[in-house]
């Protein structure tokens, strides 16, 4: 991923491949640096996960991007528009939920959407029914929001995002409050939105959900983006294991102990496990197999087990914490 800043012309979007582009973005609250020189590049037309532990600065970054609060330093552009200069033009093409979705409780879901649609273009009023239908809230649209569950308010928040037919959606913890069925529906909806060519930026601490939903991620910790890129690429660069099911695990362990992979060999009740360093090529699997067979060990199964996003995330953030 390159980090060359794009040239921005006043009032016009640049032809940028990035839906979100930030350089040195910083936001301080007195002595606390909530967003610390963030360099973020979100490709267009994908589901992008913005991951971090609680208090990492995820929501603050989103608030800065959307103009809900001001940045102290740095530059940013949304959909090619330099913001805050062209904030209204950029936000006309963006739908967003920030924090817990809250609405006027004395109004119905539909009336809340009417209030929001009125602040958008006139055509947004015509999208209310479709938006409610899409998030599965058509049947409850005329109930007061005060009677909604947290999950229903989340859905209504997504419906509010869709009112502007957005090119990009920024969803802050959209899975909060959803039951397993609701999470599945939300995943499907995000996938379908991306399939329509929209960009979805998803902030979450639910790593499993992000791994299932997103194509690319950025890991944020203590206000800094510490890794970003396609999930597959990031995981490929992480350490992985080779699980071996064989006739004599002890003998196999002895055979491998004398090799360059020896320090990572563990013999357990489920068989033999060999830890491999990041970047190790697949030819190692064949080499291990040949070594064991030549040593008289019958090999029934060899399986590469890559780290999950969760274990990788913990590995990265723990390492960063240890470094500091």
């Amino acid at each position: 991923m390159t980090t060359t800043p794009s040239t921005v012309r006043p009032g016009q979007p640049i032809d940028s491949p990035w839906a979100v582009e930030t350089h040195g973005l910083t936001k301080r609250f007195k002595d606390n640096v909530a967003v610390d020189g963030v360099e973020l590049l979100v490709p267009r037309g994908c589901a992008f996960g913005y991951l971090g532990p609680n208090g990492a600065g995820k929501t603050t970054l989103i608030r800065v991007l959307l103009g809900l609060t001001r940045a102290d330093a740095g530059s940013m552009s949304l959909l090619g528009y330099s913001v805050p200069r062209n904030r209204d033009r950029a936000l006309a093409r963006i739908g967003a939920i920030v924090d817990e979705p809250r609405f006027h409780g004395h109004l119905t879901g539909r009336q809340n959407l009417q209030l929001l649609a009125a602040a958008r273009e006139p055509a947004a009023q015509g999208r209310i029914d479709a938006s409610l239908d899409r998030v599965g809230m058509a049947q409850r649209a005329n109930d007061k929001v005060s009677k909604y569950s947290m999950g229903m308010r989340q859905r209504l928040g997504v419906a509010a995002c869709l009112l502007g037919d957005p090119q990009m959606l920024i969803l802050d913890e959209p899975m909060n409050g959803l039951d397993p069925g609701g999470m599945l529906e939300m995943r499907e909806m995000i996938t379908s939105l991306v399939a329509e060519g929209r960009t979805v930026v998803l902030s979450s601490h639910l790593l499993d959900e992000v791994e299932r939903t997103c194509d690319a991620v950025a890991i944020v910790d203590r206000g800094k983006v510490i890794r970003q890129g396609p999930i597959a690429g990031l995981l490929a660069d992480s350490a992985f294991e080779l699980q071996i099911d064989c006739s004599t695990p002890d003998r196999a362990g002895t055979l491998l102990a004398g090799t360059r992979w020896g320090t990572g060999v563990e013999v357990g009740p489920d068989g033999l496990c060999v830890g491999l360093a990041p970047g190790t090529g697949r030819e190692v699997v064949a080499e291990v197999n040949r070594l064991l067979v030549e040593g008289g060990v019958s090999v029934y199964r060899l399986q590469e087990v890559h780290a999950s996003l969760e274990s990788w995330f913990l590995e990265v953030t723990t390492r960063l914490g240890a470094d500091q």
Binding site: Q12, P13, D88, R89, L91, A92, R93, R120, E121, P122, A123, A124, G126, R127, A130, S131, D133, R134, V135, G136, A138, L162, L163, G164, D165, E185, E188, M189, S192, E196
Partner: peptide, 23 residues
């Protein structure tokens, strides 16, 4: 979940990217 497109309604901006609603 029923999938109904919201894109059937005209967008808020013209082909040059100008906002049509004086936002």
């Amino acid at each position: 979940m029923t999938v109904t497109t919201v894109a059937d309604v005209p967008p808020a901006h013209d082909t040059q990217g100008r906002s049509t609603d004086h936002r």
